[in-house]
């Protein structure tokens, strides 16, 4: 839609600006202030310049947490995006089953994040959980509280359970938007099922898929409550991701300066990634 130029529109945006200033700008400025000081108590603080940043950037345990985070985020993307597309293609297109499958798909999205952890805790425990008991009965030694690999795989499975539906719902609505004429043209050409997918469906899904990747990447990058409840970040630190690392540092240990420096680095990563994705999305809509 062609929009008219009107600087008074700023007045309509003002309320949002005020609310978000209170909940984002002021806190962010505060984080910057904290990050350059060593704050012992409200009356004893020292200016330390960029020391906390130096410290954080060279911290091995943080590098490890960032590495785990990246591996986790890419793993869930690699599973969820193809699986989401596949399930969306399997969805019925008309009839009563559409509504039923849609509601069933939306269910995991509506579960509070800590309850997702609880559900999987109950489901995967080797003594009382259906999944844990079944896998152990098959002769595989599985115990997510004891083994690093078991814990990591359980967290990945939990995230797939929790969020693949979002990708499915996005792709499904993208598929529904393709006019029937495209399919008929493909049928006349005698295109195989794969050719239809490759040349008719996939190109028209790029828009929703970019958004799905953006949302899934960003949300998996800030995952906190689910592994916190399920594994508490353990065993060892095998499922401690960035947000939990930061929350422990900030609220658990009240290590204000280091936590603030870390927060800023974390925020800069998110800012750059959001900008890249946003630019891709807006340019592709224009082009």
């Amino acid at each position: 839609m062609e929009r008219t130029r009107n600087e008074r529109a700023w007045l309509l945006v003002l309320p949002v600006m005020i609310v978000v200033a209170f909940s984002a700008i002021i806190p962010l400025m505060t984080v910057v202030n904290y990050s350059v000081q060593d704050i012992l108590d409200p009356y004893t603080r020292f200016f330390v310049g960029t020391e906390w940043f130096r410290d954080i950037l060279r911290d091995d345990s943080l590098h490890a947490a960032l590495g785990r985070q990246l591996v986790f985020s890419f793993t869930v993307l690699l599973i969820q995006i193809p699986l989401g597309i596949a399930i969306a293609l399997c969805m019925p297109t008309r009839g009563i089953w559409v509504a039923i499958t849609l509601v069933a798909l939306a269910l995991p999205l509506l579960v509070p994040w800590n309850v997702v952890g609880t559900i999987w805790q109950l489901f995967a425990r080797q003594d009382i959980g259906l999944l844990g008991v079944t896998i152990n009965a098959m002769g595989i030694d599985y115990n997510y509280t004891g083994s690093r690999m078991g814990a990591w795989l359980t967290v990945v499975a939990m995230d797939v359970w929790h969020w693949t539906s979002l990708v499915v719902l996005l792709c499904y609505s993208g598929l529904r938007a393709i006019p029937d004429a495209y399919y008929q043209a493909a049928r006349i050409d005698g295109a195989s099922r794969w050719a239809v997918f490759r040349h008719v469906q996939l190109p028209r899904l790029t828009g929703v898929l970019t958004i799905a990747v953006l949302l899934r990447f960003m949300d998996s990058f800030m995952i906190y409550a689910e592994p916190f409840v399920l594994t508490g970040g353990g065993p060892g630190s095998s499922t401690t991701f960035l947000s939990q690392y930061l929350a422990t540092m900030a609220i658990g240990q009240f290590d204000v300066g280091r936590a603030a420096a870390f927060s800023l680095i974390y925020f800069l990563i998110i800012l750059a990634l959001s900008w890249v994705f946003y630019t891709i999305i807006t340019r592709s809509q224009k082009g």
Partner: peptide, 10 residues
Amino acid sequence: MNWMYWTVPT
């Protein structure tokens, strides 16, 4: 504003 711990450089 005290809790924001302003410094001159920031």
